[in-house]
Every structure is written in C-alpha cells, then in structure tokens.
Simulated assay, not measured.
Amino acid sequence: MRTVLSWSGGKDAAYALAEMRRADSVTVKGLLTTVAADTGRSSMHGVRRELYERQAAALDLPIEFVELPTEPTNEAYERVMAAAIESYATRGIDRIAFADLLLDDVRAYREARLSDTDLDGYWPLWGRDTTTLAADFVERFAATVVSVDGDLFDRSFAGRAFDAEFLADLPEVVDPCGENGEFHTFVWDGPIFEDGMQVRTGETVTRAVGDGEFHYCELVTG
C-alpha cells in the first residue's frame, strides 16, 4: 500500500514510521506536514520548516507542506487538507497514515474527512499502551521536547531530552506520550534515520495558545 504519513516530526510519528518500515505490506512514499504560512512553523510544535526539511532528508523521504493561514478556521484547514489529499490521490497514493494512539474523537474526525475521498486512513499505532510505547521509544530514539503546556509544566521542561528522566518527572495527569497535547517533541536520531541530525537548543519563549499558554524551545541545527 502506497502510504503518506501525516508528519509532526515528533515521537509518535517517528515510531509510526519505524513500524511501517518493518511491514512488508506498506510502502511509505512521503511525509505531509502543516505549517503556518506567515511564520513557516508548525502551530503546536513551533518547529521551523527548515528543520522538517533537514529531518526528511535524514530520513531519505520527500516531504510536502500544507500552508495554513494565520489562526485558520476549521473550514480553512479542511479546505487546504482536502486539496492535498486530492493531489495525493491523483498520484496513486492509497492511504494516509496517522500516529494517533487512543483519542476516538480525533480518529473519527479524520475518518469523516477521508470518507468522500479516494484515500483510506491508516493507524499503525492505534490502541498501543502509551506507557510502554514511551519507554520503548526512549530506548531506541533521541528527541528533544520542543513545547509544553504552561498549565502543566514550568519553562524548564521545554528543551529537555525526551528520555527516562523526563518520563519520571511527568506530572501524574500527563500522558507519557503527551497524547492529549500536553507536550510535543522533535526527533533527531534513531533507527529510521539514514544519518542522525545534530541539533541544539536555543531560546525558550512563552506564547498564548487559546485560553492558556505554551512554552516553546527553539531548536538550531548543527
């Protein structure tokens, strides 16, 4: 099955890619990422387009970007995503994979958006235990925490390695994989890479997100 992976650059997407590359029935043809048109960054991760491009090169996969307007409405998001899906269908892609683990409403939304298209949805990690997955991930991959929910974390958590120590320090209410959006990561080494990336942390800033705030740590390559 010719598959495109919805790509965040983070741990769950990286783990999903590893699982798909081990499956004989899956051919991963590329990555799809959304960024803000005005900043060139992903909205929740805060990661720059340039880093995604370098990450994709290290993964030896093409990456395509869907640019979103500033503070897009749901209708605007659905419109640009529908155009991307239609484009993939015309190029012979069979399905789009998502790294969701357990949120039924998120999966139902994605299924509804694909229901009238020629692409199927695919969830290679669905139903996995998040504690087990997180523990396995830190044994095999290297990632940096790039954003954290300010209602749950102080600024010091942004920029930390996503490792066993980070998992041990998580508040009890936080899912080990951040499945509820509590934190986000950027993966820069592991078994899916042809060659690992070199990244270092920069400035941490705090920005309003909805009714709360997130702490974002800038990542710099090299």
Rank of each mutant, 00 (worst) to 15 (best):
M1P: 07
R2S: 12
V4L: 13
W7K: 05
S8H: 04
G9R: 08
G10A: 04
K11H: 10
K11M: 10
K11C: 02
D12A: 10
Y15P: 08
A16D: 09
L17T: 11
R21Y: 08
R22N: 07
V26Y: 02
V26W: 03
V28A: 11
V28I: 13
L32I: 10
L32A: 12
T34N: 10
A37P: 00
G40K: 07
G40R: 02
H45L: 10
G46I: 10
G46K: 11
E53T: 14
R54H: 13
A56C: 04
D60T: 09
I63R: 01
F65D: 02
V66C: 09
V66T: 04
E67S: 08
E67H: 03
E67I: 03
T70Q: 14
P72C: 10
T73R: 10
A76K: 12
Y77H: 13
E78V: 15
E78C: 12
E78W: 13
R79D: 15
R79E: 15
M81K: 06
A82S: 11
I85C: 04
I85E: 07
E86F: 00
Y88Q: 09
I93T: 08
R95G: 01
A97R: 03
A97E: 06
A97T: 04
F98Y: 12
A99R: 05
D100N: 05
L101F: 07
L103Q: 06
L103V: 14
D104R: 14
Y109P: 00
R113Q: 15
D116T: 15
D116F: 14
D118H: 13
D120L: 14
D120K: 13
G121P: 03
W123E: 12
L125D: 07
G127A: 07
T130I: 01
T132H: 04
L133H: 06
A134E: 02
A134Y: 01
D136G: 09
F137A: 02
F137Y: 09
E139V: 00
F141N: 05
T144W: 04
S147K: 01
S147E: 06
S147P: 00
F153Q: 08
D154H: 06
F162N: 03
A164H: 08
D169N: 12
L170I: 03
P171D: 09
P171L: 08
V173E: 15
V174K: 05
D175T: 02
P176V: 01
E179A: 00
G181M: 11
G181I: 10
F183R: 11
F186Q: 02
F186N: 10
V187E: 01
V187M: 06
D189M: 05
G190E: 06
P191Y: 02
F193E: 08
E194S: 12
D195V: 14
D195L: 12
M197N: 04
Q198V: 14
R200Y: 08
G202A: 10
T204K: 07
T206K: 13
R207C: 02
A208Y: 06
G210V: 11
D211F: 05
F214W: 14
C217N: 15
L219Q: 02
V220M: 14
